[in-house]
């Protein structure tokens, strides 16, 4: 038995025009997938039952994890983009697994009852103006909401972080993608007050982005 692999899902059912509607997997996506693969033993040892990916986009991450964990866990995903919800469902189906998708803002419609065991979030982390979060793209779409993060690239992430302790189970894991400008140290401090220990488990510099994946855990 070698190291366990997190197989990258087949995305051949999505085409170029689909990526005009949802975020196409890029370096940040692949860094998260790599980090989750390296951490698969940690995830398995938690034996997560309810998993949630917030902002699932093409569905490549939730599908990969759903496949790896099989029938021992139920994978849910949210996205405010209706195409992302549809594609996430299709990506899961095309890879013979199931991801249960609900269109919503972040986790706003999930019961805040410490029920989620595993949370995945590759947020819109790019530093922009606050206004950019409320305006459509030139073509009227909201595709930029997949990456525009407002001030410090933290405005969207912070809306989730402030209550994540009520969403996540007493024993839980949370993987978050950040860039240097998001001030990861400040995020670690914020979440430690909600009982989470954070650790950077993967980093990569891609062009001008210093990307990292932070793993938060509590009760482990």
């Amino acid at each position: 038995m070698g190291e366990e692999l997190l197989e990258t899902p087949d995305l051949s059912h999505l085409n170029v025009s689909d990526y005009e509607k949802v975020y196409e997997p890029r370096e940040d996506t692949f860094l998260l997938l790599d980090a989750l693969e390296k951490d698969l033993n940690v995830i398995r040892s938690l034996q997560p039952r309810l998993c949630l990916e917030v902002g699932s986009g093409s569905g490549v991450v939730s599908t990969a994890v759903a496949r790896a964990l099989g029938s021992s866990c139920f994978m849910m995903a949210t996205d405010l983009n209706p195409f992302a919800c549809r594609f996430t469902r299709e990506t899961a189906q095309a890879n013979k697994t199931h991801v249960s998708c609900v269109q919503m803002d972040l986790d706003s419609m999930i019961r805040m009852d410490t029920i989620i065991d595993l949370l995945l979030f590759n947020p819109p982390y790019v530093v922009t103006s606050s206004e950019e979060l409320n305006q459509p793209d030139e073509d009227g779409s909201y595709l930029h909401l997949a990456w525009a993060g407002g001030l410090k690239g933290r405005e969207v992430t912070d809306r989730l972080l402030e209550h994540v302790g009520k969403l996540l189970a007493p024993r839980s894991l949370f993987y978050l993608v950040v860039i240097k400008e998001n001030d990861p140290e400040d995020i670690l401090k914020n979440l430690s007050s909600q009982g989470f220990q954070g650790k950077t488990i993967a980093s990569r510099k891609v062009r001008n982005e210093h990307l990292s994946v932070i793993r938060f855990c509590r009760g482990l």
Partner: peptide
């Protein structure tokens, strides 16, 4: 098509969440 749409307008949610 199996997907609930629970996206609401900003003015429908509590201001301070």
């Amino acid at each position: 098509r199996g997907i609930p749409n629970m996206l609401v307008n900003e003015n429908e949610v509590n201001e301070i969440n």
